[in-house]
Simulated assay, not measured.
Amino acid sequence: MELTTQQCNESMSAATNVLLFEDDYLEIKNAIERLHSLFAGVTGINAGNITDQDIYLPSGKAVSTIKAAHCLKELERTRRFVRGIYHAINHLLDTIPGHIINILYAGCGPYGTLLTPLTSQFTAAQVNFILLDINPDSLEAAKVLYEKLDLLDYVVDFVCADATTYKFPDGVRIDMVISETMLNALRKEPQVAIMNNLIPKMRPEAIFIPEKIAVEAVLTRWEEEYKHFTVLDYQPKRIRVGLVYCASREFKLPQPVVIEVPASKTHNRLDLFTEIKVFGREVLTTYNCSLTTPFAVCKLENQSDSIKIAFEYILSDDPGFTYMI
């Protein structure tokens, strides 16, 4: 039996309360499954077999509609981002009382995953959205979702555009920008290019989500990393080498950096680790999700002396860090 609009919104509200306020992972998993069932049922976009195609841009890959739907099902990723955005909205409501908080969501996908659940926590008199995606199929699905859930009062506009070149609309004060368009180590997708375009256009008080993305070079050992998954609460022994890049509200494009890697008889793999601070205390660390899985750079066999490795970020249709020993 098809749910009424009221039943859909009650179901979404209950699931969102779990994401925001519960810490039991089984409850959180079930809440995300309920959200997926609801969103997929309304839009017809199911996070199942990927049969559609990514969109390739001069600034990187924009994921397909079904791939974007899959992002919802990464438990810790969704939970941390939704919680962080919830706290960020409350912060803005406290600091600019009496104003509607206008949020640009660049790369909203078919579900508006990081904002749609929060319509159960805030009214349209408190928050308004500009939902932007370069994929017309994703944007059309988002329109259907908001129409069928009777949430159109929240939306200033649905925009099909490239976020790396998008300009804020005249007469709309943007208080928050959300863009979660990345892979681990900032590869492949246009997160850096989007930040480079949008952050300079933001007012000083406006918030960018995520607050910080740090990429660090780390020496690892396979046996140590394996224990992380097989031994309860095991903390792998690693050798932190140096910060490769940090993107934040005080945005700067990545600059070439040279890092000295110490000699090690035990740790022979150089990885890039990614840590994402969504907002406040909501942080995604190593192995929390696909965005923070270590990215292997190279193996350093029989290394008796320290060596220097130069990293450079390439902005292109295949963005990411290159390295030279």
Rank of each mutant, 00 (worst) to 15 (best):
F158T: 09
V159N: 07
V159C: 08
V159D: 08
C160G: 09
A161K: 11
A161M: 02
A161T: 12
T164G: 05
T165E: 14
T165M: 07
Y166C: 01
Y166F: 15
F168P: 03
F168E: 03
F168K: 04
F168D: 01
F168C: 04
D170H: 04
D170E: 14
D170P: 00
G171R: 04
G171S: 02
V172F: 04
V172C: 12
R173H: 11
I174K: 06
I174C: 06
D175K: 04
V177W: 05
V177C: 12
I178N: 09
I178V: 15
I178P: 10
S179R: 05
S179V: 06
E180N: 13
T181C: 15
T181F: 02
M182F: 13
L183Y: 03
A185F: 07
A185S: 15
R187T: 11
K188R: 14
E189S: 06
E189Q: 13
P190I: 12
P190G: 09
Q191T: 13
Q191A: 08
Q191F: 09
V192K: 01
A193M: 13
A193V: 05
A193T: 05
I194A: 02
I194T: 10
N197I: 04
N197D: 12
L198I: 06
L198G: 06
I199G: 04
P200D: 10
P200W: 09
P200H: 08
M202P: 06
M202N: 08
R203N: 11
P204L: 00
P204I: 00
E205S: 12
I207W: 06
F208E: 01
I209A: 11
I209W: 07
I209H: 08
I209P: 08
K212P: 01
